[in-house]
Amino acid sequence: MPTKIEKDQLSGTDTTGHEWDGIKELNTPLPSWWLYTFYACIAFAIVYSVLYPAWPWFNGHTSGLIGYSTRAELTQELDAQAKARAVFIDRIRATPLGDIRKDPELFNFAVAGGRSAFQTTCMQCHGSGGAGSVGFPNLVDDDWIWGGTLDQIYTTIRYGVRNANDKSHQSQMPRFGADQILTPAQVSAVADYVLSLSDKGKATPEGKKVFEENCVACHGPDGKGNQELGAPNLTDGIWLYGGDRQSIYNSIFYAHAGSMPAWGDRLDDATIKMLAIYVHNLGGGR
């Protein structure tokens, strides 16, 4: 029950006027600086909740008078980034692939842009540094299946390998064992011969004969391959599907036909150019 406010004799402080069973409460208010800061915070909160998205509403939330949203802000930032990049992207699109290197600024942009695109679209198969893995070629070494010049790399990225695109690289190695073109013994012999091309193991005349009859058309008489046909070099000790005897036997018996998407169908031409420059710059480019 509120009673009258009186001065406490002991402390000299006013009471609040509240009394419970004879116990009275002294009025010791919060420090005024604290109170005013608190009021200022309330005022700020009210103004903020009017200006900015704040309250849950039937169809979502109140959007605030100034129409701010983090999503719009992000879009703005992305647009600004895209706009800043567009200058370079346009120049890359307009510059012939081979001439980009002549402009260091443009070249650096292309390498950085290529790296970024590589991490998005290529690293899933070729690895983050381009080291590849079994079935997916290493892009850092100097061994190229479809050619390692800038233009050849560009073409491979743009049209891909063994896909539905008309211009994609096409070739097919016969399934020598599975389709009974060669007997298992012949496959075994030619596997030994192929190994001997990179100074591993000893070849039999039988293996050499089978190779000359079946393989030279694509891999060449000396086994150095043919980039026109995507026939790998068999003499260099670099193996796409494994270099041990069993792996080579399997490759001849069943054959492999790796595929790569035609990135030109999905990516902008400037991105393809940047990717080609990046891959070429990894170290193996011719």
Binding site: G127, G130, A131, N138, V140, D141, D142, D236, G237
Partner: peptide, 10 residues
């Protein structure tokens, strides 16, 4: 990545 690379001539 990769740590090293082997070239065609070894």
């Amino acid at each position: 990545s990769p740590n090293f690379v082997r070239l065609t001539n070894g």
